[in-house]
Amino acid sequence: MNVFRLLGDLSHLIAVIILLQKIWHTRSCAGISGKSQVLFALVYTARYLDLVSTYVSLYNTFMKVIFLISSYATIYFIYMKFRATYDRNHDTFRIEFLILPSVLLALLINHQFSFLEVLWTFSIYLESVAILPQLFMVSKTGEAESITSHYLFALGSYRGLYIFNWIYRYWSEQHYDIIAIVAGVVQTVLYCDFFYLYVTKVLKGKKLQLPA
């Protein structure tokens, strides 16, 4: 463990807390893409199946359980409890165009052709594009509530900080995982446009307006 990975995981945890708090407190999931949340649930389910087979550390197990529970809780809020506030008309990204290529790529490019490893690889590829429906929805609605942009900033920062973690681990322990690194860079790059707007607008108290 290193400070970059710890900060990254905390940033991820903060993002999840911001999202759940926003939905619970406002009793509304307006502006939130249910499709992205479905993809995240898929990602964590596929990646954390090793919870039953491998024990890494208490921290690792605890965080995996938190991310699994929170992703399903968010789906429950969006599609059941607060479904009246779900903005279905603006959440129209075709997620099959993200899932299928991730499955194919995971079958073709992986470290080991085993069940858990291919699922892990699928989850890495899918996570790199899982935010697209959410960014697409924000661009369609043309704006995002500031709390939603804080959520996106924390979520984008998590994998961005992981890049520093991978640099540190390569330098300090000659460890690297090219699949995680390439996907992590793609994932972070997808947020760049949003990061720019967040820093130049939201931090100055303005509303986040994405060019539609």
Binding site: T54, V56, N60, F67, H111, Q174, Y176, D177, A180
Partner: peptide
């Protein structure tokens, strides 16, 4: 070493 059998990251 490239990759790692045990994925110790989240």
């Amino acid at each position: 070493d490239q990759n790692n059998d045990l994925h110790d990251e989240l």
